[in-house]
């Protein structure tokens, strides 16, 4: 067990290092310059060049990379034009936003978390619920309706669903406020009211995959020997389905859910854009558009970290849920 975890962690760190290098190189391929963006008028090329030098953009690339990575662990001194000392974990100073990237994160991360976590709960409950119902009522109208609903969801585009939901609930029926983010602790009702459409739009799309998957898994498990044995032993239907079948069927669902949630936390660009919410995804897009290196690096790293961590958690859960899986 311990060996497995160590091995997993090592490979995760390796992945993150690779992601950081790729995103760093990617930035230098961008035909954008964060410095020239600052002066739409009367730009003086010599002054700009001095600013670039002071920001370290003219240093050798590997030095810039190492300085940045070092800053994450030990903090670094960024000079007076970038807010001075930046303590660990220092994600750099965004020249474009004129603030430390950690400050940007403390602002936008709660938005993304507030969108994804409730949405994930809804789509898991809805998806797995639909899948179970249709598996247990296989071949009935209920089965077809559930799977039809799921497939329709999977065929919709988020921006289309999102726009139609907004037209109906906000501008026509006027029963919901325009999507916005209020911190949960400040006003829970307002928090939910501002995000509820985003949750359901996201959940509607995602639940389809889970409904289909959990139906297939459930059917497969139900046909396996240990279930028949359990039934033959005289265990009640509810006990067999609830304890044994669901437990076996849930393993692959956990895998996909882990990856989906991890991926969604890394940036729900389309959701955030559709509903006009400023979360991690939109921040990343803005950063790429303005050539804001520290913010690009930080958003890519954080979203990659979410996925990598989700992967490890999934592997561990696997072992806990399904006794057939042994960790090597």
């Amino acid at each position: 067990m311990l060996r497995f975890i160590v091995k997993r962690l090592l490979s995760a760190v390796l992945t993150l290092v690779a992601v950081s290098i790729v995103s760093f190189l990617m930035f230098f391929a961008l035909p954008r310059d964060p410095v020239s963006g600052m002066c739409p008028k009367n730009c003086n090329p010599e002054r700009l060049e001095r600013v670039r030098q002071e920001l370290g953009l003219r240093d050798p690339k590997h030095e810039q990379y190492l300085a940045y990575m070092k800053g994450i662990f030990t903090g670094r001194d960024l000079g007076s034009s970038q807010g001075g000392r930046c303590d660990a974990p220092c994600l750099g100073y965004s020249y474009v936003n004129s603030e430390a990237v950690t400050d940007t994160f403390s602002r936008v991360l709660p938005v993304t978390l507030s969108i994804v976590i409730p949405a994930a709960i809804i789509w898991l409950v809805l998806g797995v619920g639909l899948g179970m119902i249709s598996a247990l009522r296989k071949g009935t109208v209920l089965d077809r309706a559930a799977i039809g609903f799921a497939l329709t969801g999977a065929s919709m585009q988020l921006y289309f669903v999102g726009a139609v939901l907004q037209l109906v609930f906000i501008y026509t029926l006027k029963i919901l406020p325009v999507p916005h983010y209020t911190p949960l602790l400040q006003n829970p009702l307002d928090w939910a009211g501002g995000l509820v459409l985003a949750w359901f739009a996201l959940a509607f799309l995602f639940s389809a995959i889970y409904a289909r998957l959990s139906r297939a898994q459930m059917l497969e498990t139900l046909s396996e020997d240990f279930i028949r044995t359990a039934r033959a032993k005289g265990l009640s239907k509810g006990r067999v389905y609830g304890r044994h079948a669901l437990r076996a069927a849930i393993t692959p669902i956990v895998t996909i859910a882990g990856l989906d949630v991890g991926g969604a936390l890394g940036g729900t660009v389309i959701t955030e854009t559709t509903f006009g919410l400023q979360g991690l995804g939109r921040t990343a897009v803005d950063a790429v558009r303005s050539g804001d290196l520290p913010t690009i690096m930080a958003t890519v790293l954080v979203s990659a970290a979410f996925i990598v961590v989700a992967n490890i958690i999934v592997d561990l859960l696997y072992a806990l849920i399904d006794p057939r899986v042994r960790l090597r």
Binding site: M38, C39, N42, N44, R47, V51, E54, S80, S81
Partner: peptide, 9 residues
Amino acid sequence: PDLTGGPTY
């Protein structure tokens, strides 16, 4: 030079 962004007339 740290205070960039403003007019320079």
